[in-house]
Design a binder for these strands. Structure first.
Length: 466
DNA sequence: GCATGATCATGC
DNA sequence: GCATGATCATGC
């Protein structure tokens, strides 16, 4: 192998100084080998940083990119929208080798030896902007904390055990918390030929990746310096998984009535979020449960569910309002809702109304099955997109007995799908998002914010199941 | 009791 | 002021 003349960075300082010369530049300014010409896909951005910032030839070397420093370079995009900064996507690290992973301990694994120290270059991603126009924002050295390493080791072992159990074909990104084995290679039906032959089952090509939630947290920490509450110590993680630890925190409270919970945990200001506050207190969190470091990094989202005396759930489950324009411009495969649902693990905390008082019944970790997401989710998404692009949004009006007139719309309804539907989700009717095409009937250019909802009957069947 | 449209309450 | 988790209200 030839010597790489450009890779002579003798210290981290020198490396970071070199990176800083590129901060604020657009990729087209750094594209010394004209990689953006013709294709201009995001895959070339990492290569442009290697060549145009650090001046070394791209390679698929087994060593880290800066071997003498033990640092691997990664380039990744961020969203900066609404009030939040977030990672655009998971960060692929290296190939997921089914055969090697089966028998290699985490400490000796390729992914750990190559990626234990990362230089992460971030750029701001903007919808519709060519990659050449996007700008390098910042580079930072990322070292995993002790807790991170325990979680990642556990994740690695979950994947390893699945391979050992002959279930390599059942690996899914929601199996793990920070480190995942995401599918790689465009298109469906791709196979990892070597591994498929070795194990005698069809296996998708995969990569080790840091999950989106984890990336979002480390990027937010760097860019916003905000403090995040942590509820789990590294020492605890040595012996137990995040799920086990969370589950054990709830144990003393199962079966307790709300009045007993108030005695034990204190009385929240009576409000719509009081069940969330009980859960936070059980976990030892002061702030919102979903903002806790371990929840955010692992993309675990708490949802409180009330089971009524008649055995039903009264409420469907809401998600953040979407942008009509984004939906109109996106394909299902890259839609935000799909991205969110494939990466999200839910923690259901179930409170059951028994004789008029809610009792903390049980918890359940859950992710939506890929089949439902990609069949029903896709169907609903496409129907929604069609309605938005057609401009046939309002289908009529209804005068209620109090004289108020409400609008009836053509969005995919609860009655039309057993799992997923579209309904309003804003502060009130005047809380709107812009439409891609004005409504034909009313001429409205904005419409009451909407979101995807999971149907309560489906949630009920999920929590009734084992 | 559900479907559908609308809105509340908190926290940042 | 606004995003978001959660809930309400009407009509069938």
């Amino acid at each position: 192998m030839s010597v790489n003349p450009g890779r002579l960075y003798n210290s981290v300082d020198e490396l970071m100084k070199q990176f800083d010369t590129a901060v604020g530049k657009r990729f087209k300014e750094l594209d010394v080998n004209h990689r953006l010409v013709g294709n201009g896909n995001k895959g070339v951005l990492g290569q442009i940083v290697e060549e145009g910032v650090f001046h070394y030839p791209i390679n698929s070397d087994h060593n880290a990119d800066f071997p003498n420093l033990g640092i691997e370079l990664k380039t990744t995009g961020i969203w900066n929208r609404k009030r939040d900064i977030s990672a655009k996507e998971r960060l692929p690290l290296c190939a997921f080798d089914y055969i090697a992973t089966e028998n290699t301990p985490f400490e000796d694994s390729y992914v750990w030896s190559k990626c234990k120290s990362l230089l992460i270059a971030i750029y701001e991603y903007l919808d519709g902007m060519p990659y050449g126009e996007m700008m390098l924002l910042k580079g930072f050295l990322h070292a995993f904390t002790k807790s991170d390493i325990e979680v990642i080791r556990n994740d690695y072992e979950i994947l390893q055990n699945k391979i050992k159990a002959g279930k390599a074909d059942e690996i899914s990104e929601t199996d793990t918390n920070y480190l995942s084995a995401c599918t790689s290679g465009a298109g469906h039906g791709k196979k990892d030929v070597t591994a498929s032959r070795h194990f005698g089952i069809d296996l998708k090509p995969r990569k080790f990746a840091l999950k989106g939630g984890y990336m979002t947290q480390i990027i937010r920490k760097i860019l916003t310096k905000q403090e995040v509450e942590s509820i789990i110590e590294a020492a605890e993680l040595k012996e137990n998984s995040i799920e086990d630890i969370i589950t054990s925190r709830f144990k003393p409270y199962f079966g307790k009535k709300e009045s007993e919970l108030i005695d034990l945990l204190g009385k929240p200001t009576d409000s719509k979020n009081r069940f969330e506050r009980y859960v936070a207190a059980m976990l030892g969190a002061k702030g919102k449960v979903n903002s806790v470091e371990e929840f955010a990094k692992a993309n675990i989202q708490l949802k409180t569910i009330r089971l009524e005396e008649n055995g039903t759930i009264e409420q469907n489950m809401s998600f953040p309002a979407f942008s009509f324009i984004d939906v109109a411009n996106q394909e299902w495969e890259d839609s935000e809702f799909r991205e969110m649902m494939t990466n999200q693990k839910f923690l259901f905390a179930i409170f059951e109304n028994i004789n008029g008082e809610y009792v903390f019944k049980k918890i359940k970790f859950w992710s939506i099955p890929d089949s439902i997401l990609d069949n029903d989710g896709q169907k609903v998404f496409n129907e929604l997109k069609d309605v938005l692009l057609s401009g046939n949004i309002v289908r009529g009006f209804q005068t209620q007995k109090d004289g108020k007139v409400i609008r009836l719309n053509n969005f995919p309804k609860s009655a039309s799908n057993p799992y997923i539907h579209i309904r309003p989700h804003g502060q009130d009717g005047g809380d709107t998002n812009p439409l891609p095409v004005p409504d034909k009937l009313t001429g409205l250019t904005e419409y009451t914010k909407q979101c995807f909802w999971l149907k309560k009957s489906y949630i009920l069947s999920v929590i009734k199941g084992n």
